[in-house]
Design a protein around this nucleic acid. Structure first.
Length: 224
DNA sequence: ATCCTGGTAA
DNA sequence: TTACCGGGAT
């Protein structure tokens, strides 16, 4: 049916090699939502600079951010890139929180609706696509929605699990069906995928360093 | 010069 | 499907 090694087996190998990542610990749900937007096609180190600038200006709060002029918001997040686009996206996110009566407590979204409904509502917000919606559900709201990103596609296509042509929904469904539907597991798996993707399974892969090379057909086809 | 925990509008 | 948004790190 579907080729390549089983998804739980890959998870165990990555966890054994990299250890627990515990992503986004101790941050407020709103700060995690902001990070999910700012990190779109952007290195996380630059997101951290932008979040620090927002905090300095007292804008790391949904009410304050909603009230802030777009121009000020844009200047604040400049290090994250795409700052004019992302300023509008952050504002749209805050407007959505206001609509939901969650401005003072964004975590309230968690119990406002079931996961599929909440996901659809997030997708309707300007600037929130599938990956960002799932990142918010998983990392800000502690709801088990598997995050699929460019690393996921690249890694599992090289492993032979995917062809590379699958839709976002199809890839997400494979993880949902083959992995236990567990919050900590979804959280950890995506973090491990990012770790592997940026350190080893890069555009120019470093297969000799890869913890998955024994079960990956790609290692034989590249020279490093 | 390439890549980074994408999404929108055309 | 493609153009566009963009500063920062390597």
């Amino acid at each position: 049916m579907n080729g390549g090694p089983a998804l739980p087996q890959i998870y165990e190998r990555l966890l054994a090699h990299f250890g627990s990542q515990h992503w986004w610990p101790g941050d407020t749900p709103f700060e995690v939502m902001v990070g999910a937007v700012l990190t779109q096609n952007t290195a996380w180190t630059n997101v951290e600079k932008a979040i620090l600038r927002l905090r300095e200006r007292g804008l790391l709060d949904a009410s304050a951010m909603l009230a802030a002029p777009i121009e000020i918001l844009a200047e604040s997040i400049r290090p994250a890139g795409y700052y004019n686009v992302k300023a509008r996206r952050l504002h749209a996110l805050c407007a959505f929180l206001a609509e939901q009566g969650a401005l003072s407590d964004p975590y309230r979204l968690r119990t406002a609706a079931d996961i599929p409904t909440l996901r659809q509502q997030l997708l309707a917000v300007h600037g929130i696509g599938e990956e960002t919606a799932d990142s918010i559900l998983l990392y800000a709201l502690d709801l088990p929605s598997f995050v699929v990103d460019a690393y996921t596609r690249r890694i599992f296509t090289r492993l032979g699990v995917f062809t590379g042509n699958e839709s976002y929904a199809a890839i997400q469904a494979r993880f949902r069906d083959q992995m236990p539907e567990d919050l900590a597991c979804y959280n950890e798996y995506h973090a491990l995928i990012v770790m592997l993707g940026k350190s080893i399974c890069r555009p120019g892969p470093r297969c000799t360093l890869c913890p998955l090379r024994e079960t990956c057909g790609h290692a034989d086809r590249v020279s490093d």
